[in-house]
Computed example of a mutant assay.
Amino acid sequence: MILVIEDDPRIQKALYRQFTTEGYDVTLASDGIEGLNSCKTLKPAGVVLDLMLPGLSGLEVCKGIKSWSATTPVVVLSAVSEVADKVLLLEMGADDYVTKPFSPRELLARVQAAIRRTQRPVSNQKISFGNVTADFSGMVITKDGAPVTLTAHEIKLLQYFVENADRVITREELLSDVWHYTSYPTTRTVDNHIMKLRQKLETDPAHPVYFRTMHGIGYKFVRGS
């Protein structure tokens, strides 16, 4: 089931037709509060979320959805096209971003791709390194046995590092594979997220053992023994 959170009746109608034609059940919500409540109640396979909504902004709805269910795919739909807004949304956990005017078929393809990514089997559902244990099936991270709160993209980044352990990964690759950027604006997104992972998971963040900087190239996750 696809949840469409959009206040424009014309867009609602177009998306309802597009998704139902492809065999999806579709639920429509016309404001942010209704949309967030519907997401929690219905547990959709994917969410199409307008950025400019009455009641509660798309930014807040996205943040609310991801804090409740980090794996629910959210594709944002908006007339706002500034790079800064895209970066903010992606940092808050949005899986993709489509700018109005748009092709319903393109949006369908983006939503389907986001759903496939979240349904991809994880090679290591539960792993440990040092005093940290990560259970990706339950999205639970602990350090010294105590829960550690990570944002949706911090978990995605950690999972990507685990799946690519001991391999040097460029910032551009991380922006493409974790944030799904198709271009690479000047941004500190990757560096800021890795800094947060170090602060939360390293014993000494100033001298990281697991999340290592490869100067001039990118980063490498070293799980250790």
Rank of each mutant, 00 (worst) to 15 (best):
V4C: 09
I5F: 07
I5H: 07
E6T: 04
D8I: 14
R10A: 11
I11C: 10
K13D: 04
A14N: 04
Y16I: 06
G23E: 03
Y24W: 12
D25G: 14
V26Q: 09
V26T: 10
A29G: 01
I33R: 14
I33V: 15
N37A: 13
K43P: 01
K43R: 09
K43I: 02
K43N: 13
A45M: 11
G46S: 06
G46L: 10
V48S: 02
L51H: 10
L59I: 12
L59G: 05
C62H: 04
K63N: 13
I65T: 03
S69G: 03
A70H: 05
T71W: 00
T72S: 06
V74H: 05
S81Y: 06
V83P: 05
L88G: 06
L90S: 03
D96I: 13
D96M: 12
V98A: 02
K100D: 01
R105N: 08
E106P: 12
L107E: 10
L108F: 15
R110D: 02
V111K: 04
R116P: 09
R120E: 15
P121H: 03
G130K: 01
N131A: 14
V132I: 09
V132D: 03
T133V: 14
D135H: 02
M139D: 08
V140H: 08
V140Y: 04
K143Q: 08
G145V: 15
A146E: 14
P147N: 04
T149V: 14
L150S: 14
E154V: 03
L157E: 01
Q159W: 02
N164L: 10
N164P: 12
R171D: 13
E172T: 07
S176N: 08
W179R: 08
W179I: 08
T182R: 13
S183P: 01
P185S: 13
T186L: 12
R188P: 04
R188C: 13
T189L: 12
Q199G: 15
T203L: 10
D204V: 03
D204M: 08
D204P: 04
D204N: 11
P205I: 00
A206D: 13
H207V: 07
V209P: 06
Y210C: 04
R212G: 05
T213L: 13
M214V: 15
R223A: 13
G224D: 02
